[in-house]
């Protein structure tokens, strides 16, 4: 296992030689599996989504994860949040992790906005007291107003995302993982979200941001990690990372 230098004691996220392979199964029932075995057909193929990824994120750092579609960015965030388990290597985190992998994943359309705020905040790890304390702030940020007691299925898609994002951003956290969720809402709300994330960053929260919005990541992050086919091909200053990403185009 890789030696971790003494400076990494103040790290928030340590990604240590991570590998992740997906087994793509071609059968989805006992019957299909059985027939495939009889016919000596392959019942699965393997795909390497991440291969020996190594980095550490220090406390208070804002890092952008860059790369083309399918390069493994979301997979990496899911490994850090614990949704997926690595096949090799290890991930270590210190502090409360809030994963904005997709906002509104726990929302139920038949429940009111209020019920959903409580449910979703608890899913993101908040206690009852914390939620009650922040409830008004959450509703205010989302600008949902009196719709809070309406069933969520009657919301416009923008309203839905606003509320979901507002819940996520108000959770108690040390590490924020953001995956493409900023491409939501109308322009004023997007600005508000960016400002909120910048505020969290200035409070010393650690951040790992995945986004295809280059302007946004250069504004929010000082460091960029470029992924390509599951490998880290660049890790350094954000401007250089962006140029490296652009250079891949050709």
């Amino acid at each position: 296992m890789r030696k971790i230098s003494s400076t990494q004691g103040d790290a928030r996220i340590i990604v240590d030689g991570i590998g992740k392979t997906f087994v793509l199964r071609h059968t989805h029932s006992f019957k299909e599996a059985f027939i495939a075995v009889l016919r000596r057909k392959k019942i699965s193929t393997v795909f390497k989504a991440l291969d020996g990824v190594d980095f550490a994120v220090r406390e208070g750092e804002s890092v952008a994860l860059l790369g083309f579609n399918g390069s493994g960015k979301s997979t990496l965030l899911k490994l850090i949040s614990g949704v997926l388990k690595p096949d090799s290597g290890r991930v270590l985190t210190r502090g409360r992790v809030a994963g904005l992998i997709e906002v509104g994943a726990g929302f139920h359309p038949d429940l009111s906005g209020r019920e959903n705020v409580f449910l979703n905040a608890a899913i993101l790890g908040m206690s009852k007291r914390e939620i009650t304390e922040r409830f008004d702030a959450i509703v205010e940020f989302s600008e949902i107003g009196e719709f809070i007691d309406t069933e969520v299925k009657h919301y416009s898609s923008g309203m839905f995302v606003r509320l979901a994002f507002s819940v996520a951003i108000h959770t108690e956290l040390d590490i924020l993982l953001v995956d493409e969720v900023l491409a939501v809402g109308d322009a004023p709300f997007r600005e508000k979200c960016k400002a909120k994330i910048a505020e969290l960053s200035s409070q010393g929260k650690t951040m790992l941001v995945v986004s295809h919005d280059i302007d946004m990541v250069t504004a929010l992050c000082e460091r960029g990690i470029l992924l390509r086919h599951g490998n880290v091909v660049f890790d350094g200053e954000i401007d250089k990372a962006v140029s490296a990403l652009r250079a891949q185009d050709v």
């Binding site: 270590l92 985190t93 502090g95």
Partner: peptide, 14 residues
């Protein structure tokens, strides 16, 4: 090691 890391406040997510 993972044990040392855990002593330093790290956790293995998930």
């Amino acid at each position: 090691s993972t044990a040392q890391a855990e002593a330093a406040g790290f956790v293995v997510p998930g």
